[in-house]
Design a protein around this nucleic acid. Structure first.
Lengths: 225, 225
DNA sequence: TTGATATTGATAGCTTTGCTATCATAAATA
DNA sequence: TATTTATGATAGCAAAGCTATCAATATCAA
């Protein structure tokens, strides 16, 4: 039996369901490749269309603009991460062990899992590191938020916040600590490779060290309370 | 006597010294206002020129493109913050008190200081919160870094890292903790106002709480070591 | 005071990006 | 077989992003 992981997406993000057609899946697949390769600023629907072998108008039938596509991709990623977390921490009782495996999942490189043929999770992870915050660092963040575009991110943050509370019921900042873990798992990675003097891992460039840093940060914060 | 604070800027960021002419200062002043008002994506040199009362070509004589202008503004800001830190912690012996005042400086709203007529530090602070990371989250980050464009940010990070080491000489992650403080001082602010469920401050929207969170985070991490 | 130099204004023009519209064709479905 | 539905092909237009040119001032040095 072949299970296909399906992540429920906000319908206001697209005009036509990308998962529902070959062209739609190609749009997802090739946009991940192109944004990974050239960055979000240089990415255009024209180039994407050429890469796929369709026309610009063809892409516009699926997504209104590249901003919505970026939100789509990052949302998909956060949904996928939340699934990974629930999958990997399913049978773990100890919340401390759970939280450690969450940190590891967020900070470690992702191998392309073959369950989702048109999404390369490894590349998508890199995209979310380098471009993810551009999804919400905009003037439309308020309207986008009203349309629930950031629900997957917020859900993930809530899940992690709850694990933190399981570890330390009296800790005062579970949600802020959760968003700090998520953002820093990515930023320390970006800094390590691109602006290494902003980290302590510039020499070795080992993700293990980011994980150790985050574990130290998180558990010294929540233990004492 | 009137002292004019001058922040030394990387010369590769501009074509003509903005501080050196009326038009140049207007470019700085009005770009801060426009980016604050409409966001960096909607900001163009054409609109800036109209706002100032000059022409597009006039702006291009000072800055190659809006990306360099953004780096200029954020660099100026980091330089200014570093000055504020050295000014305010000048006579403080206790590194713990010093670190606390650094956190406060980073996380608290800034009053427009009148020493710099053409820079509104309050608006610039908001710009750095919402747009600052776009200065380095690009494909050119490597080249930009080679040209030392991020030196002010890195210098600030080093200063804070050293204060952390003064507090706790054996702490293993001074630079990563420093960049975490800087980024989170800004991100928690952005989240609090725009995506409040990612923080624990959505109800009160008080900067004091962000400061308390960061103090808790930082001092529980470095104390135990 | 004259001449050289630097700064700004005015205008033009060109490529790319971002987006919409229309029509024909092929494929799926009822 | 009729009819939706998805795609391809093409056109077109406004805005963004950038470069070039020439004239009018202002500044500074000889």
């Amino acid at each position: 039996m072949k299970l296909q992981l399906q992540i429920k997406m906000n319908e206001a993000l697209f005009l036509r369901i990308p998962e529902g057609s070959e062209l739609g899946k190609k749009i997802i697949k090739h946009s991940i490749q192109l944004i990974y390769k050239n960055g979000f600023e240089a990415f255009t629907f024209k180039k994407l269309a050429e890469d796929i072998g369709t026309t610009e108008a063809g892409v516009y039938r699926y997504f209104e603009n590249k901003h919505k596509l970026l939100i789509y991709l990052t949302s998909w990623y956060w949904g996928w991460v939340e699934f990974q977390i629930s999958f990997h921490t399913n049978n773990i009782k100890d919340p401390v062990v759970k939280l450690k495996s969450v940190i590891k999942l967020l900070a470690a490189t992702i191998e392309d899992d073959k369950q989702t043929s048109y999404v390369n999770e490894g590349l998508l992870h890199q995209i979310v590191i380098a471009e993810g915050s551009k999804a919400y660092l905009t003037k439309q963040v308020g309207e986008d938020n009203k349309q629930q575009f950031f629900k997957p991110y917020k859900d993930l943050c809530a899940v992690i916040g709850n694990i933190i509370l399981e570890c330390s019921p009296k800790y005062k900042y579970p949600k802020s600590l959760a968003s700090t873990i998520i953002e820093m798992a990515h930023y320390q990675n970006f800094f390590m490779y691109n602006l290494p003097s902003l980290t302590d891992f510039g020499k070795t460039k080992e993700e293990k060290e980011i994980i150790a840093f985050l574990n130290d940060l998180v558990f010294s914060s929540i233990k004492k309370g």
